[in-house]
Every structure is written in structure tokens, then in C-alpha cells.
Design a protein around this nucleic acid. Structure first.
Lengths: 358, 358
DNA sequence: CTGAAAGCGCTTACAG
DNA sequence: CTGAAAGCGCTTACAG
């Protein structure tokens, strides 16, 4: 073992010397490109094999101006949505000859040193931050994921958006088909917050709930709330809502629900983590899902499948979503035509968290 | 925006020409090494700044024979234990001038192309597989995590082990201090399986349970069981137990518990995921944790903190564990002395899943 | 079919 | 203090 440690890495030059040819020939043989006399080729391949020659990826990259690696910059690895998306990316990247890796380093600074051909950004938040820092003067192909919060993002970063609006419609329709009419919404942001879920829920439920609309909006933004997303964004402190926050807010939502004595038959939850929190809080108050109340949520992540009961959740097809992101990035890297904005629909991931009322 | 896209990447040569000096001088100025006339240095730095010059990481790596990147090879990203460990690694790596990334690609093949200085392996399983494939003839510094299943691993890969044996002792002692004596164990492997948890639990509980020992071992290995770990290892099919499996097995464990009419006051769970499954299964059977029965588990992961109730769980100090792994790898990379085997103790992560009996 | 040569972008003794 | 030169490991026209 020891000797293998100290063995200097073989190079093509070494092989060339052993085979009595030039480096060019070795390269051609190994890369299977250009002419090489059959017997020499065989000999070279044999020698390489015997001596465990491994090409030096860094040298190849320098010469080819291509690392073959892409990076998914994602901080919140405890949220399984992000992981599911990553798995989708890995597969799509592999098919296109790239290796997809995750980086969760704290600052963007590290990214300058990253030996990658492009970067996939976790959400609009990081796209914006990227544009304000490295994006300004450092050209590296970048593609962002987005979840319906498209403010006025610069056009310079291609975006692949999961259609939150359509997804909310799917959830409401799903519930209505099963007889639900009094459908509450629970999420981390306030009633006036212009985020997509809030806006669309209000729009769709207004006709059903009328002036009770506001009551059915379980606003948990009271304490710290109202967009840590934004507060944080300026302070640079915490990054994004985490599960603990979701849990607390979910508990708060249930408190409000019970306090108001709402006769909601179903709740739409901000995301799977939030939904899990709701279920737990309900359980603690002696209410069972879906017998006493139904729950649906956004994400369709692994989390929704492993929750008890399994969640009815709307989410992107992760394989497709990952594929679109990677495809867009690779096109950008390889200088092909691409869409600066594309969209992935949501699909219902079936579960057992909804009761049929009729 | 468009022009920035097509702007060719600046090189030191470009800066040199603009500044009217040689590339060497530019390099010295930028790297802040060696002599450079003060004014020239200033000019060079200004030019670099103005033209958004960014060093080419690949070229630097080739020359320095160092990428500054390390890879955490980990497939099971849905298990928060692995994520917690990664976060620990990121921090430790940063301190030592490395960037830690995650790779979850399906095959090891990709690893040859990875532009990294070393690799951290998720567990003994991958260490073994690594040794049998690339490890055989490809020298790249590698360090493995291990959870008490040290079979006869070759000495060539340094191992940082989480002390499972001591951790089991901590759990049992924790429970005993609170008056528990009838402590069951629930995990995925069979009663005869020589894994560390099983062995140590039997050893510690034998004096307390006597001939009822076997009853208190909730063996869920019946169906597919008895080490997918091993079956899989040969087939190369599925990789490792996943959460869904844990959930099913947890349900099975509770079924056995109830069927046997055990008067267990506490259960030690294989890991946090398993424990969460147990809680849910108990809840479905009208039993509450910790009022009716207490649960403790292994991992001490993020999952244990966000479960309801929060789990009492024994796990490594992730910062320390990540640090030891990274430190060992970096030493190996940099040719310093290192321990081929080191150990991290478990610590109790407090929670609300244990009831005090006295 | 083969090999010397130039080059990818950077570094670092070394002679001036 | 400066710059030409050699080199990191590989590729690829191009002249033979």
C-alpha cells in the first residue's frame, strides 16, 4: 500500500517512453482519435492498463477548456425538495457528459475557485444575490430555479420556473372534486405578502369564502415572520426558512385555526415540511388527518411520501425539472440557443391525507 | 449582457500587455509574492480590477498540483445524518483552504474525472467497494466514515469511526438513570446479525432481561431484511436502506411489540429515521411517546430535533466528526502524519421522547 | 502513420 | 526589481 501512495502519477510521457513512441501517439491511442499503427496502439493500451495510468483531469480540462462538471449551489440540504431536484439533475447531467455536484458553502466567494463549467442556483433569492455580486463581472454560465416569485429579475440569468400558480389551481381543484369548499391556507407569509401562493389562493377562494376569506388565511407571519426571506436577504444572516421555523409556524397556524373555530375541511400547506408540521400539531390537539381535516401541500418531495399519512402534494416532476435546468445550463455552456425562461408544470403526487367528502 | 457573454476570459497575458510588463510580473503582483515595483503593482491591480480579471482555477490547479477541492461521496442525501456530517465537513474544509462538495452520482467511474484532491466516503460499504474498484490501482487520497462495522477493512484507507458501542452504552445508561429496565431494541437487522448495535444491546440487556432478552429484540428482518446492506452489496442494485424501508420496518417492529404484549417502557431505535417511524406507528395504535413508551435513537441528526416529540438521540458532534474526517484527508493529501483509525464519541442530544419513571 | 511544436493559463527558479 | 524560459499534463493541427 505504501508504495502505491508514493508512486508518482503516471503521465502520457511515461507511457510514451516505455512504448518507444512520442506523446502524440500515446494521446491518439488513448483517445482513440487519429491514426495510430494497430500494434503500437495495442501496446500503448496494454502499458497504460498495466501501469494503472489514469488521465489527469485537470490537464485535460485546461486544454479542452471544459471541466465537465456543474455545480448545484444549494444551502438548504435538509429540505428534501432540493435533494429530489438534485437527483434529477445528476441523471440529466450524466446523460450529457457532465457530473453534477452540490456545494453548500456559506459564501459565493468560493465559487470563483470552483472548477466547474456552470452553476445551478437553488432559487430566485440566490439568483438575485448572484447577480449583485459575482454575476456582475464574472462570466460563468448560470441557471436559476424559481418558484413563482419572479420579481424583476434581470434577463441575464435563464430561469426554469415551477408553475406555482397552476399548482395551486390543481390543489384546489383536487380538493373541490372531493367535496371540499372551506379550504384554508397556511404558510409563513402574511396576508398582504405578494407571494404567488397567497395571491392565487385568495383569488381562487374568494368566490367560495366571500368575506370569510381572510379568516381562512392562517397568517403565521406575526412574530418574526413577514419574509425572513427579505429581512435575511439584506442582513445576510440566516438564509432561508428552515424546518424548525416551519414547525413553529405550523403549530401557530393550528392554534389560529382552533382559536377561530373555523370549520375548514381542508388546509393547503405552503410546502411539505409545513404540512408535516400541521399534521403533528393537529395530532397533538386530538385531530386526525384526514379523518378530521384534510391536508394538501406543495413540493411533492420525498418528504411527502414518507410522512404519515402520505401527503397529497403538488410538485414538479423532479426528473423533468432537473433535466430542464441542466439542459438549459448545458446549452448556455455550449453556446446553443436556449430559452431564458421556461416552466415546469406541477403534478399531483398522490397520498392519503385527503378525505373524500362526497 | 450579451457582450459580457462573449467577452473572452481575461488572462494574465492580457493584463501584462496592458500594463506593459511581463506575465511574471503580473503573476507576482496578483499573488502578492516576490518583488514588484510598487507603482507597477498598483497599476496591475487596478487593471485587473477594472477588467474583472478572474484567475483561471484550472490553470492554477495544474501548475500547483492542487485543486483545493474535496468530495464527499454520498448517495443517501435524504438521510439528514449525512447532511449534518457534510455541513461539518464544509466548515472544517473551509478553514483548511478546501472547498467540500457532495457527489451522489451513481457509479464510481465518474470519480476518475473529478477534479478533486481527495474523497470522503460515506460509510464502510463504500470504502470496501472503493478498495475493490478504483482504490486498487488509482491513487487518490481517501478517508472513510464508519459506524462500528469495521470488518476486516484493508489498512489502506484511513477510517474515522463513530463509536457505536459507547453510544449504545450512553443510551442504556440514560434510560436506566430514568428508571427504565425493560428496554427493547428495534432495528432492521436480525437477532443473529453481527452488527455492533445488536451485539452491544444484547450484551448490556442480558443481565436485565435474562431469558426474555430475545423477546425484547424487535426483529424486523423477516421479509426482505437480513442486511439489504449485504444483499445489495453483491448485486449492486439498491444501495442502502432508505427511509421507506425504515418506515415499514418500524411499523413491523411495533406490530411485534404489541403482538408479544411486551411491557417495554422504552425502545432503542436503530437511527432517527427508524425512531420517527416508531413514533408514528405507535401513534396510530393509540400509544403516545413518551407518555406510554419512551424512545431513544442513534444519529442525533437534524431529523431528531425536528421530530415531534424531539428525540433523545445519541450522535457524534457533527462539527467534530466532519473536522476529523477532513483533517485526516487533508493530512493525507498534504503528506503529513496521520492516524489510520480514529474515533469520535457519541453525545446525547436532548429531547422530549423519554419519560422519567422515577 | 509519426513526432516536433505550439498552446491551454498559470508559476517559479534564475540570470540579468 | 524584471522577464525569458521551462514546466504542470494534455491536445491537435501540421510538416514530414
Amino acid at each position: 500500500m505504501k508504495q502505491s501512495m508514493n508512486t508518482k502519477h503516471m503521465t502520457r510521457k511515461d507511457i510514451a517512453e516505455m512504448a518507444g513512441v512520442s506523446v502524440s501517439v500515446v494521446s491518439r491511442a488513448l483517445n482513440n482519435s487519429g491514426y495510430v499503427a494497430a500494434e503500437k496502439k495495442a501496446k500503448i493500451l496494454r502499458l497504460a492498463e498495466e501501469h494503472n495510468y489514469i488521465p489527469h483531469p485537470v490537464a485535460m480540462s485546461l486544454q479542452q477548456r471544459r471541466t465537465g462538471q456543474i455545480l448545484y449551489y444549494c444551502k438548504d440540504l435538509h429540505n428534501s425538495f432540493n435533494i429530489d431536484l438534485y437527483y434529477g439533475m445528476v441523471e440529466a447531467a450524466r446523460k450529457r457528459g457532465y457530473m453534477a455536484m452540490i456545494n453548500a458553502n456559506v459564501t459565493f466567494d468560493h465559487i470563483r475557485g470552483a472548477m466547474v463549467d456552470g452553476i445551478l442556483l437553488q432559487n430566485e433569492f440566490f439568483v438575485r444575490r448572484y447577480l449583485e455580486t459575482y454575476g456582475k463581472n464574472y462570466f460563468l454560465p448560470v441557471v436559476g430555479a424559481s418558484f413563482g416569485n419572479l420579481e424583476t429579475l434581470s434577463q441575464s440569468v435563464p430561469i426554469v420556473e415551477w408553475d406555482i400558480e397552476g399548482s395551486m389551481e390543481l390543489l384546489i381543484r383536487y380538493l373541490r372534486k372531493r367535496g371540499h369548499r372551506r379550504i384554508a391556507y397556511a404558510g409563513p407569509y402574511g396576508y398582504q405578502n405578494p407571494n404567488c401562493r397567497t395571491v392565487v389562493w385568495k383569488q381562487l377562494m374568494e368566490p367560495l369564502l366571500g368575506e370569510r376569506l381572510r379568516d381562512y388565511y392562517l397568517d403565521t407571519s406575526a412574530s418574526d415572520s413577514e419574509g425572513i426571506m427579505i429581512a435575511d436577504y439584506d442582513s445576510g444572516a440566516t438564509e432561508w426558512l428552515n424546518e424548525e421555523t416551519y414547525n413553529n409556524k405550523a403549530r401557530e397556524a393550528i392554534r389560529i385555526l382552533l382559536e377561530r373555530g373555523l370549520e375548514a375541511t381542508a388546509i393547503v400547506a405552503f410546502n411539505d415540511e409545513f404540512a408535516v408540521g400541521l399534521i403533528q400539531a393537529l395530532e397533538q390537539n386530538g385531530k386526525h388527518v384526514p379523518d378530521d381535516i384534510s391536508i394538501v401541500s406543495f413540493d411533492g418531495s420525498y418528504r411527502s411520501m414518507t410522512s404519515v399519512p402520505r401527503l397529497v402534494s403538488v410538485g414538479p416532476d423532479f426528473r423533468l425539472y432537473g433535466e430542464k435546468m441542466v439542459d438549459t445550463l448545458v446549452r448556455r455552456i455550449e453556446g446553443q440557443r436556449l430559452h431564458y425562461f421556461s416552466r415546469v408544470k406541477g403534478v399531483i403526487h398522490e397520498g392519503d391525507s385527503v378525505r373524500r367528502l362526497r
